[in-house]
Computed example of a mutant assay.
Amino acid sequence: MAAFLSRTAVHARKRAIAKTLCYRVLMVTITVIVAWAVVGDVRAALNIGLVTNVVKTATYYGYERLWDHVSWGVVGG
């Protein structure tokens, strides 16, 4: 199990934050468009898009940081 986990992060935290924010902007846009198509109300669609994506952003960041400590599949090092 020691070879599977790494004590040092593969990616810098700043890189993980940048990746997270770029991805979430795209996902907020998609969520708002889909919600608007379903509910037909722009204000409700914005609320749905923002609330769900705040939760998803925090979840993705944590998930990304956990994977930074897994050495499986990382070439070099």
Rank of each mutant, 00 (worst) to 15 (best):
A44M: 06
I30Y: 02
L66R: 15
V70C: 05
W67A: 10
C22A: 10
M27K: 03
S71K: 04
V75N: 13
I30T: 12
L50M: 03
Y60C: 08
L50W: 07
L5K: 07
G62Q: 09
A9E: 08
A16R: 07
G62M: 11
I48M: 04
V54R: 02
I33Y: 13
G40Y: 06
Y23T: 15
V28D: 00
L21M: 10
V32N: 03
M1L: 08
K56R: 08
G76D: 11
W72E: 08
H69S: 09
Y60V: 13
A3Q: 11
H11W: 13
S71L: 01
V34P: 06
V54T: 09
A44F: 02
T31Y: 06
A3H: 09
N47V: 01
V25L: 15
T52V: 01
W36K: 13
K14D: 13
V38D: 08
M27Y: 03
Y61R: 02
S6Q: 10
V25C: 14
V34Y: 04
A18D: 12
M27S: 05
L66M: 15
C22E: 05
I48H: 02
A44Y: 01
N47P: 00
V25G: 11
V42H: 01
A16E: 12
R15N: 08
L21S: 08
V34F: 07
